[in-house]
Amino acid sequence: MTVVALLSVAPVKEGSMAADVADAVEALEDFDVTYETNPMGTVIEAPNVEELLAAVGAAHTAVDGDRVGTFLKIDDKRASDDLAGEKVDAVERELGREARSDET
C-alpha cells in the first residue's frame, strides 16, 4: 500500500517563508518517504499512514514560530499500490499530452 498526501506547513508571519518551508522539507529526510515540493505544498508518498504521520509531525515541528499552520490532505488508497506518478500518468493518457501548459 502507498499513502499519498499533500502537505503545506508555514509559520504565520510577514515576509518570506522560504527558510521555514525548507526546514519542514528537510525534516522529511529522516523518514521512509519520497516527496516533491511545488509552489502550493509538498506531495509525499509513504509506505503506510503511520510513517506518513510521523514525517508530517516532524515537518510541522521543524518550523519555528509562535504560530504555525499545517494543511494535510491524505489519499489512503488501501486496495492499490499505485504511486503518485501513476495518477498523473493516467490523467496524461486521457489528455493525450503532458498535464501542464507550455512554459513561456
Rank of each mutant, 00 (worst) to 15 (best):
V3M: 04
V91L: 15
T37C: 01
K73C: 05
G96I: 03
A5P: 10
R93E: 15
T104P: 12
P11E: 09
L83H: 12
G85K: 08
M1V: 08
R100C: 01
A58M: 06
A18F: 00
L28I: 02
A55D: 08
N48I: 03
D82I: 06
E36I: 07
G41K: 02
G57S: 13
T104E: 09
P47H: 05
A10V: 11
V49D: 06
E50V: 13
D66A: 13
P11F: 01
K77H: 11
E98W: 02
K73R: 14
L7V: 14
V3H: 04
N48R: 06
L52M: 09
E98Y: 06
D30P: 02
I44M: 03
S16W: 04
G69Q: 10
G69Y: 08
A19Q: 12
V68A: 04
D82F: 01
I44D: 02
T2C: 05
D75R: 10
A27L: 10
G15S: 06
S16H: 05
A19S: 13
L28V: 00
V4T: 15
T70D: 08
V43I: 13
E45W: 00
T104N: 09
R67H: 13
L28C: 02
A18E: 10
E45P: 00
A99V: 10
T70W: 03
E26K: 14
V56P: 04
G69R: 12
S16I: 07
H60D: 08
E86C: 03
V9R: 03
E92G: 09
R78V: 10
L28Q: 03
S101G: 12
A46R: 01
E94H: 13
V21I: 15
